[in-house]
Design a protein around this nucleic acid. Structure first.
Length: 291
DNA sequence: TACGCAATAT
DNA sequence: AATATTGCGT
């Protein structure tokens, strides 16, 4: 059975966004990669090991997590090169290995048909075993990228800084740009603050719907955390460290993708562990202040 | 240009 | 569910 009639134009490489891995979709992927021999790279904003395996097992040459940076794209031609090597020389082990060493390792996995990723590229013993698992087609894929969070998590600490900025400015003056300036968090965007502010205001509206009779608002009430037991859990915590830097890559080449945020300051990982993006941390996970 | 807000997307 | 984006009126 063939999904594709006629010949595909002279494509050297296909970079595709994820599609639902239905049986048909995966068969098309197989046909493109095997019958037509076009290396196909899949992009996704997130993926677990089984998802990646699903595509790789069906012929995907690579699996890129968005946001895709230019450095990742610069090496993507390797897949075309490997394909040509496969066609012109069945015994390409030496050349393949030399090529492997000449360039940064591929992000996650390569097609089983392609040259296997060498263990020398893995830095830790654990990663070595993981690489072997990938190539043996039965194991967990673990990559640092798997931990990459694509969206900002408003941790209690970060929210505290947000609130501090809002309180400092006052109700009327608290606009995203000024909040951003006061928070002093590198790479935090105005849009992110605006989004959070919008949600925060909605919360205040619900939580404190009434104003005083003469129409004046109650700024101290509205913005004073102490008056809201439901939020005290977040507001009453002492600030033990200021979050000052979140990185937001500007070179995202994947369309419509979310952006990665990561720490980029000088704190050691241990010092920073309470403020990681991991949402599965109970204590410092996403801020649910009853919005 | 920035803002605010609702709707919508991821 | 939380956050991001978009669209449109100020």
């Amino acid at each position: 059975m063939s999904f594709i009639s006629g010949n595909l134009p002279g494509l050297d490489l296909i970079i595709s966004d994820v599609f639902f891995p239905t049986e048909d979709g995966l068969l098309i992927l197989q046909e493109v990669t095997t019958k037509f021999g076009i290396p196909t790279v899949i992009m996704a904003s997130s993926a677990d090991a089984s998802t990646v395996m699903k595509y790789v097992a069906n012929g995907a040459a690579d699996f890129l997590l968005k946001p895709v940076r230019i450095e990742e794209l610069r090496n993507i031609w390797q897949h075309v090169f490997r394909k040509q090597m496969r066609e012109h020389n069945n015994n390409n082990i030496m050349v393949g290995n030399n090529l492997e060493r000449s360039y940064p390792p591929p992000p996650i996995a390569m097609a089983p048909a392609a040259t296997t990723r060498t263990a020398a590229e893995a830095s830790t013993p654990q990663e070595i075993s993981e690489v072997r698992d990938i190539n043996s087609n039965n194991g967990e894929i673990t990559d640092i990228r798997d931990l990459r969070k694509s969206r900002l998590s408003w941790t209690a600490q970060l929210h505290r800084q947000f609130i501090a900025a809002v309180n400092h400015l006052g109700e009327d003056k608290a606009v995203p740009k000024k909040i951003l300036g006061i928070m002093k968090v590198k790479h935090l965007t105005r849009e992110q603050v605006a989004s959070h502010l919008q949600k925060y205001r909605l919360h205040l509206k619900k939580s404190i719907p009434s104003t005083s009779r003469d129409g004046t608002t109650l700024p101290s009430t509205a913005l004073n955390t102490q008056n809201h037991p439901s939020r005290s859990k977040y507001f009453d915590q002492d600030v033990c460290m200021e979050i000052t830097d979140y990185s937001l890559p500007k070179d995202d080449l994947s369309s419509g993708s979310e952006c990665k945020l990561e720490e980029q300051n000088d704190y050691s990982l241990e010092d920073f562990q309470d403020f990681r993006w991991d949402s599965d941390k109970q204590e410092y996970g996403p801020c649910f202040w009853n919005f």
